[in-house]
C-alpha cells in the first residue's frame, strides 16, 4: 500500500513533466499542423542553458532566464526557418524539425561536450520532505509538481478567459476563417511556437537536475512526447494533461511491479515448457513487466490510432 502511494506520487511527477512538454507541442501541432520533432530538443536546450546560468548566478535566475532564451530562439526559428519551409508543404516541415533536432543535439555536443553535466538541485530544496515506509520523497519533486500545476492553470486561464486565447482556440479549428477575419495568424503562430518552446525549456530547467543533463536527453524523451499528444488528442489541453498523467503512471507502475509473463501465461492456462533453456518461446516466458515498461506507451499509441484516431479528447482527426 505504501508503495502504491509513493508510486502514485512519482507517476504524478513524471506525468506533469510530460505535460509541460506536451501542452506546448499539442498547441503547436494543432495550429500549424506540424509535429515538431525538435520539441524535446528545446527541452534539452532549457536544461543546458539552466546549467550554464546556474554556474554563474545560481539555479533560481536560470529558472526565468533559460526559458525566455529558449522561447526567443524558438520564435526566431519559427519566423526564419519554419515559415520558410511552410510553403513547401507538411512533409518538408516535419523533415525540417527532424533535421533541427539532429542539429541542436550536435550543437549542444559541440559546445558542452558529450559527458553528463553536473547540474544539481538547488541546495534549498535538496532535502527529503517526507518519507513513506522508508522511501524518502525529495522536496524538489514537490516543487516540480507545483510549477507544473501552476503552468496548467495559467494556460487554462489564457486559453479560455482572454482574447488571445479565444483567437488561438478559434485558429485551432478554423485557421483560415480566423485569418480572413483580420487576425494576424502568422504572429499568433510565432507567439504560440515561442511560448510552447519556452514551456519545453522550463521543463528542461526543472527536469535537468533530477533526470540528468546529457546530450541524449532529448532523444530519450522525444518520441514519448508525441505519443502523449497523439493519445490525448490534438489541441486539447485537458487531453494532454490526461494522457501525460496516464503515461506517467503507466511508466511508473510498469517499472514498479515485477509481473512475470510466466505467471500470466500459467494463469490463463498454458503450461511452461519443460526445456526452458532451449525452447523457442523462452524469451516470452521469462519476460517481466519492467523489461517492457518503456515500450508500453507505444503499444497504447498504436492501439489508439487504430481504434480512435482522434485520440482520447481530440476535436478532430490527426
Amino acid at each position: 500500500m505504501e508503495l502504491v502511494i509513493i508510486n502514485l506520487l512519482d507517476g504524478l511527477v513524471m506525468g506533469l513533466l510530460l505535460f509541460m512538454l506536451s501542452s506546448g507541442l499539442t498547441l503547436i501541432f494543432s495550429m500549424m499542423g506540424v509535429l515538431n520533432f525538435a520539441h524535446a530538443s528545446f527541452y534539452m536546450l532549457g536544461a543546458y542553458f539552466g546549467y550554464q546560468i546556474s554556474q554563474y548566478v545560481g539555479f533560481w535566475p536560470g529558472l526565468i532566464i533559460a526559458p525566455v532564451l529558449v522561447g526567443c530562439g524558438g520564435a526566431l526559428i519559427e519566423r526564419y526557418g519554419l515559415r520558410r519551409v511552410h510553403k513547401f508543404g507538411h512533409v518538408p516541415e516535419l523533415i525540417f524539425t527532424f533535421g533541427l533536432a539532429l542539429l541542436i543535439e550536435e550543437v549542444v555536443q559541440f559546445i558542452w561536450g558529450k559527458s553528463q553535466m553536473a547540474y544539481d538541485e538547488p541546495a534549498v530544496l535538496n532535502f527529503a520532505l517526507f518519507s513513506i515506509g522508508g522511501n524518502e520523497f525529495p522536496a524538489y519533486k514537490v516543487f516540480m509538481i507545483f510549477i507544473a500545476v501552476g503552468i496548467f492553470l495559467v494556460l487554462l486561464y489564457i486559453l479560455t478567459r482572454t482574447r488571445v486565447g479565444l483567437v488561438i482556440q478559434a485558429a485551432l479549428s478554423y485557421p483560415d476563417t480566423v485569418q480572413n477575419l483580420g487576425h494576424n495568424v502568422p504572429l499568433v503562430f510565432m507567439g504560440v511556437f515561442g511560448v510552447g518552446t519556452a514551456l519545453a525549456g522550463l521543463a528542461g530547467v526543472i527536469a535537468g537536475p533530477s533526470l540528468g543533463t546529457f546530450p541524449g536527453m532529448a532523444f530519450l524523451l522525444g518520441s514519448i512526447v508525441f505519443v502523449t499528444i497523439v493519445v490525448g488528442g490534438l489541441g486539447s489541453l485537458w487531453g494532454a494533461l490526461l494522457a501525460s498523467l496516464l503515461i506517467g503512471w503507466l511508466l511508473t507502475f510498469a517499472a514498479s511491479y515485477n509481473v512475470h509473463m510466466s505467471d500470466v501465461l500459467t494463469a490463463i492456462g498454458f503450461t511452461p515448457p519443460e526445456d526452458m533453456a532451449e525452447h523457442f518461446l523462452r524469451d516470452l516466458w521469462t519476460l517481466t513487466m519492467p523489461q517492457i515498461g518503456p515500450i508500453l506507451p507505444y503499444i497504447l499509441m498504436v492501439l489508439i490510432l487504430i481504434v480512435r484516431p482522434r485520440g482520447l479528447m481530440g476535436k478532430r482527426e490527426v
Binding site: S223, I292, Y298, I299, V302, L305, I306, E317, V318
Partner: peptide, 28 residues
C-alpha cells in the same frame, strides 16, 4: 495504411520503437 499523413507516420514510429525494443528482448 488505412490513413495517410500523420496517422501513418505515427504508427510507423510506434511500430519502429516496438520492433527495436523487441530485438533486445527476444534473444532467440
Amino acid at each position: 495504411t488505412r490513413r495517410a499523413g500523420t496517422v501513418f507516420a505515427m504508427i510507423s514510429l510506434g511500430i519502429g520503437e516496438l520492433i527495436a525494443a523487441c530485438s533486445i528482448i527476444i534473444v532467440v
